[in-house]
Design a protein around this nucleic acid. Sequence first.
DNA 1: GCTTGGCACTCACGACATCTGAGTGCCAGC
DNA 2: GCTGGCACTCAGATGTCGTGAGTGCCAAGC
Lengths: 343, 343
Amino acid sequence: MSDERRLAVLRAIVEDYVATREPVGSKVLVERHSLGVSPATIRNDMAVLEEEGYIAQPHTSAGRVPTDKGYRAFVDRIATVKPLSPAERRAISTLLDDATDLDDVLTRTVRALAHLTRQVAVVQYPSLSRATVRHVELVPLGGPRMLLVLITDSGRVEQRTVEVTSEVPDELVARMRAALGVAAAGRRLSDVVAVLPSLPETFAPADRDVVRAVLRALEDSLSAEREERVVLAGTANLARSGLDFPQSISPVLEAIEEQVVLLRLLGEMAEDTGAGTGGVAVRIGRELAHERLTETSVVTSGYASGGQVVAHLGVLGPTRMDYPTTMAAVRAVARYVSRMIGG
Amino acid sequence: MSDERRLAVLRAIVEDYVATREPVGSKVLVERHSLGVSPATIRNDMAVLEEEGYIAQPHTSAGRVPTDKGYRAFVDRIATVKPLSPAERRAISTLLDDATDLDDVLTRTVRALAHLTRQVAVVQYPSLSRATVRHVELVPLGGPRMLLVLITDSGRVEQRTVEVTSEVPDELVARMRAALGVAAAGRRLSDVVAVLPSLPETFAPADRDVVRAVLRALEDSLSAEREERVVLAGTANLARSGLDFPQSISPVLEAIEEQVVLLRLLGEMAEDTGAGTGGVAVRIGRELAHERLTETSVVTSGYASGGQVVAHLGVLGPTRMDYPTTMAAVRAVARYVSRMIGG
DNA sequence: GCTTGGCACTCACGACATCTGAGTGCCAGC
DNA sequence: GCTGGCACTCAGATGTCGTGAGTGCCAAGC
């Protein structure tokens, strides 16, 4: 019994199951794919594949269904990322080309991705910590309130209100703005944090409390928790493929809504980009190690600005998904975004 | 046959159906509510109610179910907004009190609303056109690109990149910034638009193209389409109440995802705030005039800043919803937000 | 003129029995 | 090591039937 044929059988099972959503039996397998052997032979192969955990039987008199392990083998050893069709490439350009600012780019990106893959798409905002500060602005909002605005070179704008106990004179605001500009502009955010503690010294003692409040707000803007934001699209696609979620889609929706979960995943998967998949990472079912997402797979890729990966984007769908196509779409969109934001 | 009793019967039907999700018959009706008459009498009332279109029978041998018209009568003539429980009030405070900036307030608000009502919550960003400009900032992004940032008194920050054909000297950027500041600061956005056309005149002819590009971007930021943003939460609740959507929840999810639909609704409903409902507007099923939302109801309310309604928020759920409780929650949250943003 | 008990009627739904066919595992022969 | 044959299993489809909730109507009663 040749190893290659067993892999071919596995591939055929995955492809047929993805296409038909029905357990596939030995007979249709030889009919639809030219495997050159009889159903009985295939059955032997299937028995082995099942014993090794690549496929499973929902019940005795049914065909086989790929397991997580089966999909994994498919993704790692069988499938090749297939290039997008020209029409799909055109769709990406049309959707993304006339974007205005960063918000707009990301919103359009996530929509394009959801549309291409017919699944749930996620795009993470460019990380703040790796960016450099383009500009810091401090605006008096009247009375004891000010607005701190932070603009990075990736075009991201962070805002934060600062409230102190007493009225702040405009003149002091102006001086603080100038000091912040000098201290921060052109620096990487992580470096800015290091400079901050020495700043209050340069102000009159009476003003230092106010200065410290502003710095706290700035530090807060830079801190890891606040920096992470994601945009979502295509949740309706989940419902469409509701049949793929035995219980209900509501745990999946819940998990998606807790953006923390998504962010953690995007972060984790940043590290397991497999070889030969063009920078695309895939996690399948239980590999996600999340109880609400056992029937779900995630496909992600990083996107770059200035040669540096600044954030990730991806797609979430049922384990029974068309991996080659999805991976191709994720890769293509990631590259396109990178180009747009100057990757 | 007294009119009051018929209303009482309708109320009982609505309440029971909302509670049990099952068509309600004459027998259980007299058992559960002390109506003081026999089932046969109730049947007569029900026959009339059905003839008048307030209730319907799913099939011959089943109980009755309220129609859209029935719910409408319930909301208008029977139900009273019931105050929230102390625990619920506390939940609102706890969730909202330590919000930092406007983004944060709105995100927390939408979560609170979704949590309280166990439905899909929507919060609209404060309208730009009614706001006044606090500050305009123009930041050089290097080369021919600039970033235009607009800060309103409601704390909203709008950003927009401007790209021109040639490099823009920092000095010109500074002059434009100053001119914009003078022209816009303190004005209502709608008034700012009127002032813009005269601005290029004050610049040297060679610079006017650049100035015009910036003004176009500014106008764009102020334009009606861009000004509208919404935040969503609780989509998972839809799946939970999936049984209430006979076909599937996916058309509903689709409609929600097209934020245009939501914005149109919020806008329309701004005008039909009924009397006696405490500023809360309700649309039921087909009243929404949206084919994907025939099984859906929406409950909204405006929220205010400076005594002016600046935007709306609300909740979307199955027509079979607990209107009194939902309306109470929407009203309470709207008031709370108004207080927080200085309503 | 309402209200009420009685009664015949309807019909969705669940329980149960039956059937069918896809798919399997195994084995003997090639 | 492949193949055809064969007995076996079992989920799902189909059909039948009984049950009971709920109704509408009517004639009697307050």
